Amino acid sequence: MRQMTSLTGTATAGSTAARRLIFDGHIAGFGTTEGTRIVVGRWRSSPLGSFTDVMVERADGLRVLLAPRDDVAELVAGTYAFDAVHVVPVGLRTDEGRRRWRLRAGPLTADLSLGARTRIGHLLLAVPRHRAVAPLVATAADPFARVLLDGVRTRGTAGQGSREWYVASDQHAVTAVRALWGSADLGALAPVEPPVRFGFSSVPAAPTVTRVRTVIEMSAGRTRPGH
C-alpha cells in the first residue's frame, strides 16, 4: 500500500474556461454490521480511461480512498474529502451474469451478490441519458432525491471550486456481502447508516448498485484531471 503525499497540482497560466469531465459506470454503496461503509465506483468510460476506485468510511469515521493509480487518486482526492489516500492494486470482476462482484482493493476484499432491479431502478429506466442534458436532468431530480432518499443529492459543489451532477439510469439491490479489511471480517450486509461524508451527497441507505453518469465541471484553475 502506497500513501499519496501530494494531492494537488498547479494550474496552467492563462487558463480561464471551466471544463466538464464525464464518467459513465456504476456506483455500489453498502454498509456492514461492523460499521464500515463502502462506496465502489466502477467506471467503464472516463477521461482517465476505465478504472475502479473505492471510498471507505470506517466505523470510527476515518475516510479512506483506495485508488489504482496516481492520476485517479489526484482527481478523486481533489474532488472529495478523505483522511487518508492510498494507491493500491484495485481489481473488480463480475461473475454469474454480472450478479456477483468480486472486489480486491489493497486491504479490502468484498464479494457482493446483486438482486433484482429496485422500484427506483424501474423508474430510472425512463431517465434521459444524453450527455448534453445530464446537468439539467440532475438539477430537476435533486429536490425529489432529497425527499425520497435521505442524504442523497444529485447536484452540488465539489472540491476545489468544482461543480458536480449525478444522473442515475438503473439500480439493482445488493442482497449479500462478504467483506474483509485485512484479516478482519466486517460482518454482514447493512444499510449505509450514518451517511458517508466524502462529498455533498451520500449513496442511498439501502445497499444498491446504481448505473450513473457523473459530470464534474472543474474550476478554471484546474486544467486537467487531478489538477
Rank of each mutant, 00 (worst) to 15 (best):
T5Q: 12
T5L: 13
S6F: 08
G9M: 09
T12W: 14
A13H: 14
G14H: 13
I22V: 15
H26W: 12
A28H: 02
A28N: 01
G29D: 01
T32W: 02
T33K: 06
G41P: 00
R44P: 00
S45Q: 15
F51T: 01
D53T: 07
D53S: 07
V54Y: 01
R58T: 05
A59S: 12
G61R: 06
G61A: 11
G61W: 08
P68R: 00
D71I: 09
A73G: 00
E74L: 10
F82T: 03
F82W: 07
V87P: 01
P89A: 11
G91S: 14
E96F: 10
R99I: 04
R102E: 12
R104E: 13
G106W: 00
A110D: 09
L114I: 08
G115D: 04
A116E: 13
T118D: 06
R119M: 12
R119H: 08
P128I: 02
T139K: 14
D142H: 15
P143L: 07
R146M: 12
R146K: 15
L148W: 07
L148Y: 05
R153A: 04
A158N: 00
G159L: 00
Q160S: 14
Q160C: 09
E164Y: 10
V167Y: 02
D170Q: 13
H172Y: 10
T175V: 13
V177S: 04
W181F: 10
S183I: 10
A184N: 06
V192D: 00
P194Q: 06
P195N: 09
P195S: 09
A205L: 08
A206S: 11
T208C: 05
V209L: 12
R213C: 06
T214H: 09
V215S: 01
I216L: 13
A220W: 14
